[in-house]
C-alpha cells in the first residue's frame, strides 16, 4: 500500500509542477513576453505552414467534389444556361460602358485614383474558432493595422495584428467584428456582426422595412468608419422577428467561403 502511495506521489508531483509552469507561462504571455518567439517561429515556419494549409484545402475540396459529383452534372447544365444569359448581359454592359466613357469624357470628369494599393496574400492558418486567419504578408510588405482584406470585390475582414512576415485578420464572421452595411433594393442600413449561433446577422431592422431574400449586403460608409462603401459582404438568407422585441434580424449568407479561396488582397494605404 505504501509502495502504491509512493508511486502515486511520483506520478502526481510532476503533473503539478508542469501545471504550475504552464500558469507561469500564461502570466508571462499576458505581458507579451513571448512576442519575439512568435516572430521567430512565424518566420521559420511560414512557408511550410502555408503549403500544408493549401494542400489540406485542396484535398478537402477534392473530397467535396467527389461527394457532390451527381449534383455537379445538374449544376453544370444550369451554369451553362446562366452563361448564355450572362453573355447577353455582357453585351448590354459593353454598350453601357462605352456610353459611360463617352459621357465622362464629355463632362471632363476624371476617375479618381484610389488611395490604396492591393497586396496579394496567401492564408497560412485559421484559429480554432475560425474567426481569425493568419496571412503571409506583414509589416515588411507595408501592411498595417486596420487595412481592409478583400477577395475580388468581396470584403473578408480587417487586419488586427501585424508582424514583419505575417498578419492576423479578423474576419467579418468574428463575434468582435461590426461592419456598417446597406441592403440592395431597400432602405435598410445596419451593423453586420458575426455570431457563432447564426453566422452573419444584421440586427435591429425595423418591422415595416422590407428586405428581399438573396438581396446583396454591401458595406456602407455610414459613420465614416474603416470600411469603404460598396464592397459585397453576402446575401440575405432569411429575416426573422425577434421574440419580445419590435425589431427583426436578418441572417446573411457570406459571399465567399474562406476555405475555398487560394489568395486574397490586403488594401494597404498608399501613404
Amino acid at each position: 500500500m505504501n509502495l502504491n502511495n509512493e508511486k502515486y506521489k511520483q506520478q502526481i508531483i510532476p503533473l503539478i509542477i508542469y501545471l504550475f509552469l504552464s500558469f507561469v507561462l500564461v502570466s508571462l504571455s499576458m505581458v507579451r513576453f513571448f512576442d519575439p518567439i512568435y516572430l521567430i517561429t512565424d518566420a521559420l515556419t511560414k512557408n511550410l505552414r502555408s503549403s500544408l494549409y493549401v494542400t489540406g484545402v485542396d484535398l478537402a475540396n477534392t473530397f467535396t467534389y467527389i461527394g457532390n459529383s451527381n449534383t455537379l452534372i445538374q449544376d453544370n447544365k444550369k451554369l451553362k444556361q446562366e452563361l448564355y444569359s450572362l453573355h447577353s448581359i455582357q453585351a448590354q454592359n459593353y454598350l453601357l460602358t462605352n456610353e459611360n466613357k463617352a459621357l465622362s469624357e464629355q463632362l471632363g470628369t476624371m476617375v479618381k485614383s484610389s488611395n490604396v494599393t492591393p497586396v496579394m496574400a496567401e492564408i497560412i492558418s485559421t484559429t480554432t474558432t475560425s474567426d481569425y486567419i493568419t496571412i503571409g504578408v506583414g509589416g515588411n510588405e507595408g501592411v498595417a493595422n486596420n487595412n481592409i482584406v478583400v477577395y475580388k470585390n468581396i470584403l473578408l475582414g480587417i487586419v488586427t495584428d501585424v508582424r514583419p512576415e505575417s498578419s492576423v485578420v479578423q474576419l467579418v464572421s468574428s463575434k468582435d467584428s461590426s461592419v456598417p452595411v446597406s441592403v440592395s433594393g431597400s432602405q435598410v442600413q445596419g451593423i453586420l456582426t458575426g455570431s457563432v449561433e447564426s453566422g452573419l446577422i444584421i440586427n435591429d431592422i425595423l418591422p415595416d422595412e422590407t428586405v428581399d431574400q438573396n438581396a446583396m449586403v454591401l458595406t456602407s460608409s455610414l459613420g465614416g468608419g474603416l470600411y469603404p462603401s460598396g464592397l459585397l459582404v453576402g446575401y440575405i438568407s432569411s429575416i426573422q422577428p425577434v421574440t419580445s422585441q419590435p425589431f427583426k434580424i436578418a441572417q446573411v449568407k457570406p459571399a465567399v467561403d474562406i476555405s475555398t479561396i487560394d489568395y486574397l488582397f490586403v488594401l494597404k494605404n498608399k501613404s
Partner: peptide, 14 residues
Amino acid sequence: LDIFTISQVGFTSA
C-alpha cells in the same frame, strides 16, 4: 500549439 494558433502561451498545456 498556442504559438501556432495565436493563443496565450501556456493555456493549452495548462
